[in-house]
Simulated assay, not measured.
Amino acid sequence: MIIKSKPLSLFWLKVGGYCLTIIFRIFFFNKLIIKPADIKSGHSYILSINHFSFGDGFLGFYLAYQVLIKQGKMKRLYIMSLKKQMEMKWWLRHLGSFSIEPGKYSVKESMAYAAEILNEPGNLLLFFPQGNLESCHIRTIEFQDGISEIVPQIKGNCQLLWSSNIAEYFESIKPSVYFNMLDCGTAKDFDFDRFKQEINLHHKESLKKNVRFTKEKD
Rank of each mutant, 00 (worst) to 15 (best):
L92H: 10
L68T: 05
S110T: 00
G96P: 05
S44K: 01
I34V: 12
L124C: 15
S9E: 04
E101H: 09
H43G: 02
I166V: 11
I79N: 04
G146F: 03
I173G: 02
Q159T: 02
K73H: 05
I117S: 03
L182V: 00
G60P: 04
K31D: 10
H51A: 14
R93G: 02
D189N: 14
N119G: 12
I34C: 08
L47Q: 05
Q130A: 15
I166C: 05
S53D: 12
K217G: 14
L20F: 10
K35G: 02
T21R: 10
H203N: 12
N30D: 13
F170T: 11
K31T: 13
A114N: 01
L118R: 03
L201V: 05
I33V: 15
I46P: 02
T140E: 14
G72C: 07
A187R: 04
S163M: 12
R194S: 08
K215F: 14
P121R: 02
N123I: 10
E87N: 03
N210W: 12
E101R: 13
Q66W: 06
K35W: 08
I3H: 10
L92F: 13
G57D: 06
F179M: 00
L13N: 15
F52L: 07
D191M: 03
E109W: 04
K89Y: 12
E87T: 02
